[in-house]
């Protein structure tokens, strides 16, 4: 989160005001939706669905926002890590379908966790290769970055067709994550609760690393001014490779979560979700993890509320949200102090 700068005189202690206004948007949107929906159980269900969707988008977007903030790299190929993560996860889980469908939480997790781990490992490794081969030659050249990463995404999509075939693959959720908890008239889907928990866990871990470790300090400083970080003696390119790999692994995690959410895996799922991912990182402020988190939740909530209230507007609702946010804050909710 950024702090509002107020001019300091030579002697007076400067006032630091934490900018909490963007944090208020979430409750405001939720409260505005309540009278519009006019049905508390439906509102609660939609709110949880929106938060779960937002958390999954956050998983996929958080790495990309740091990558952009650190190295000014516009990586349109990020969607490839999402798709590959989903396919790798499915490849681990589907052969053990019997365990997935068993009425045992332990057996379900014994499949799900290795699936997620494999997805993160392969997406991270793919990210490393992608950075070395595709990104490294075009540092500082935005137009070339757009062209080559888009090309990389298309190649990855076709490679998925070659490896896993052209058809979409059904990926049913583990038995213990199907269904919902019914509390009164409110249905709380188990899988959405898991998505919220995983998203929160990743967000808290990222904030902990960014704010409490020297590695986090380096990343935050690098987002602001990478040249100065190098002048202090740190090899920012190594740091960037590390962040790129971590971001790719998180995209892989997001891919598995998204695939289980939709209960299907397709080669184009990464490309499709990239529109939402870019909206989220633009709304949040490029390079800001906190902004990305709020932006993702906003996008998730808006998509669900508008989808319920005015389905025909659902497609454009997130673009409209982005336009409104940018009219209010042209650099996003939490712009990072930039060079």
């Amino acid at each position: 989160m950024t702090a509002t700068v107020k001019a300091a005189t030579a002697d007076a202690l400067p006032q630091v005001r934490t900018d909490r206004l963007p944090l208020l948007i979430l409750p405001v949107v939720m409260l505005l939706a309540l009278p519009a929906i006019f049905d508390v159980p439906a509102w609660l269900t939609l709110t949880l669905a929106g938060l779960a969707m937002g958390m999954m988008i956050f998983l996929m977007a958080s790495g990309l926002t740091l990558v952009f903030g650190l190295m000014d790299v516009l990586n349109f190929g990020h969607g490839a890590f999402i798709s590959v993560g989903a396919f790798v996860g499915a490849s681990v889980m589907l052969p053990l379908a019997a365990w997935m469908q068993a009425d045992s939480f332990a057996l379900n997790m014994a499949v799900l966790l290795p699936g997620i781990l494999a997805a993160m490992l392969v997406s991270g490794a793919l990210g490393y290769g992608f950075e070395r081969i595709v990104i490294a030659p075009v540092y500082g050249q935005h137009l070339k970055q757009i062209l080559i990463t888009m090309g990389g995404l298309i190649v990855a999509e076709q490679a998925i067709h070659v490896v896993w075939g052209p058809d979409q693959i059904p990926l049913p959720r583990p038995t213990s994550l199907r269904g919902a908890f019914i509390i009164g008239d409110v249905a709380i889907e188990k899988y959405r609760l898991l998505a919220v928990a995983v998203g929160l866990l990743v967000f808290l871990a990222m904030m902990l690393v960014l704010n409490r470790t020297k590695l986090g300090l380096l990343i935050r400083a690098g987002v602001e001014n990478r040249e100065m970080v190098e002048s202090l003696g740190y090899r920012i390119k190594r740091l960037f490779v590390g962040v790129f790999v971590a971001g790719s692994a998180l995209a892989g995690l997001g891919g598995v979560m998204w695939a289980l959410y939709q209960e299907t895996v397709t080669a184009s799922m990464g490309m499709q979700v990239m529109v939402l991912v870019f909206i989220v990182i633009i709304i949040g402020g490029l390079g800001s993890v906190g902004g990305c988190f709020i932006g993702a939740l906003l996008v998730g909530l808006t998509a669900n509320y508008v989808g319920f209230l005015a389905p025909k507007l659902a497609l454009g609702s997130n673009i409209l949200l982005m336009v409104l946010i940018l009219l209010w804050r042209p650099q996003g909710l939490y712009p990072v102090a930039r060079r």
């Binding site: 950024t2 702090a3 700068v5 020297k214 300090l217 380096l218 935050r220 400083a221 602001e224 001014n225 040249e227 100065m228 970080v229 002048s231 202090l232 990072v336 102090a337 060079r339």
Partner: peptide
């Protein structure tokens, strides 16, 4: 000057 504006004074020095 290129100070890191989002970092505290302490964090700027810790990094250096």
């Amino acid at each position: 000057m290129a100070i890191f504006a989002d970092l505290t004074v302490k964090e700027n020095l810790v990094l250096a």
